[in-house]
């Protein structure tokens, strides 16, 4: 088994990520007051996805991983997005 490289992120980058997450949380609370009609769930999911990407990239050190690993994780999100999109298409077509 190959020896793993270690990475130590700076406190500054952690602080920036924290601020971004708090900001996005505030946005997601704020947009609940606006009426996007059938797209309200989509807007909430897009904001949540950005938060998830931020956490995985920085806190979970995905940015230090190989391209293969990045593609696999991206594939997971594409898969999940497809499942959600197909479900909502059914609602749209009914």
């Amino acid at each position: 088994m190959k020896k793993e490289e270690t990475h130590i992120s700076s406190y500054t980058s952690h602080a920036i990520v924290l601020i971004v997450l708090l900001f996005l949380t505030a946005i997601s609370v704020l947009v609940t007051g606006w009426h996007f009609g059938p797209f309200s769930v989509a807007v909430a999911l897009i904001i949540a996805s950005i938060k998830v990407r931020t956490v995985i990239t920085h806190f979970m050190h995905m940015k230090f991983e190989s391209l293969f690993m990045k593609l696999m994780v991206t594939g997971v999100f594409v898969l999940f997005a497809l499942v959600i999109i197909i479900t909502f298409i059914d609602y749209y077509l009914r």
Binding site: L79, L82, V83, I86, D90, L93, R94
Partner: peptide, 24 residues
């Protein structure tokens, strides 16, 4: 494993899903 993710609707053909979803 991959295609198996996208066939769940065949349990719901009579549940009132859209025609497009049914053939998909």
């Amino acid at each position: 494993a991959f295609v198996g993710y996208f066939v769940w609707g065949h349990h719901m053909f009579t549940a009132g899903i859209s025609y497009g979803s049914r053939w998909f």
